[in-house]
Computed example of a mutant assay.
Amino acid sequence: MSVIAIHPLIDTQRQVTGAAFSGGTLICACVEKPVKVRTRHDLAHNHVCGCTQCWKPAGANFSIVAVVPTKDVDVLENSDKLAVVDPSALILRHACKECGVHMHGPVEREHPFQGLSFIHPERFQESGWAQPGFAAFVSSIIESGFDPSNMDAVRSRLKELNLEPYDCLSPGLMDYIATWTAKKKGVLPA
């Protein structure tokens, strides 16, 4: 098996860390009239995420996602192009209706994350944001159709990249649950 693709920015070892990043402007993928969202705060908990809810660029098995205080997030341009992906979800992911990029996702319900917004730092026009520090919901990539027999290789690759992989139960149990879910959805053969 070739090297496991995590995310284009991670796979190319692109350095993005800065000592004093204090926010910037996130831009969607539209060439004309892109959505622009400004954050006025440094990132927290930047990580790669394997869940099936986060936006991922083409070819990525994981997203890059972090949080900022919701009070420090402002839509600067083309807010009319934003729509909430799933109004019933905990994270209200506001995505561009044209290109599909998730621009910000506030948590508004009573929850430990209430008051935070999830963002995809790779969309910053500025450089210098902190690199991801861990991997979350690793087993969930199976729910996107990833071959469960390659999960040990994924976890090894994440550890090589200093991204400790995390899941709620043991990796084997989480792979089993995610495989069952993927089969039920029809993403993997039954």
Results as ranks from 00 to 15, higher is better:
Phe124Gly: 02
Pro106His: 03
Ser63Met: 07
Lys33Leu: 09
Asn162Gly: 04
Ile177Glu: 11
Glu32Asn: 10
Val75Pro: 08
Ile6His: 02
Phe137Gln: 09
Phe134Glu: 12
Val48Phe: 11
Ala178Asp: 06
Thr12Gly: 07
Pro112Trp: 15
Ile10Asp: 00
Glu160Pro: 02
Ile10Glu: 06
Leu116Gln: 04
His7Glu: 07
Lys159Cys: 12
Val37Leu: 08
Ala83Ile: 15
Ala83Gln: 15
Ala95Pro: 02
Asp86Val: 01
Val154Asn: 00
Gly59Arg: 05
Pro189Lys: 14
Pro57Phe: 07
Pro165His: 01
Trp129Ala: 00
Ile64Leu: 14
Val16Tyr: 07
Ile27Tyr: 04
Glu143Thr: 10
Glu122Trp: 10
Ser149Val: 14
Thr181Val: 15
Pro165Met: 08
Thr17Trp: 12
Ser139Tyr: 04
Asn162Thr: 11
Val31Leu: 15
Ala136His: 08
Val75Arg: 05
Val65Phe: 12
Ala178Cys: 14
Ala95Arg: 06
Leu158Pro: 00
Leu76Arg: 13
Glu126Ile: 04
Asp147His: 11
Pro165Val: 07
Val73Gln: 03
Gln131Glu: 12
Leu82Pro: 00
Lys183Asp: 06
Ser149Trp: 05
Lys159Val: 13
Asp167Gly: 11
Thr39Tyr: 03
Glu77Lys: 12
Arg157Cys: 01
Arg157Glu: 10
Pro8Tyr: 08
Tyr176Gly: 02
Trp129His: 05
Pro34Arg: 03
Asn162Phe: 07
Pro165Gly: 03
Val73Ile: 10
Arg123Lys: 15
Val138Lys: 00
Ala44Tyr: 05
Ser149Thr: 15
Asp147Val: 06
Met103Gln: 09
Leu173Ile: 13
Gly145Gln: 13
Ser170Ala: 13
Gly145Tyr: 07
Gly50Cys: 04
Val37Ala: 01
Gln53Ala: 13
Lys33Pro: 02
Asp86Cys: 03
Ala66Gln: 00
Ser22Gln: 14
Ser170His: 10
Ser117Lys: 00
Thr181Ile: 10
Asp152Phe: 04
Ile177Lys: 08
Lys56Ser: 01
His94Glu: 11
Lys97Gln: 14
Gly50Asn: 13
Gly24Met: 00
Thr25Cys: 05
Val31Gln: 13
Val37Pro: 00
Asn46Ile: 06
Leu161Asp: 03
Ile4Ala: 03
Asp42Ser: 11
Met103Lys: 04
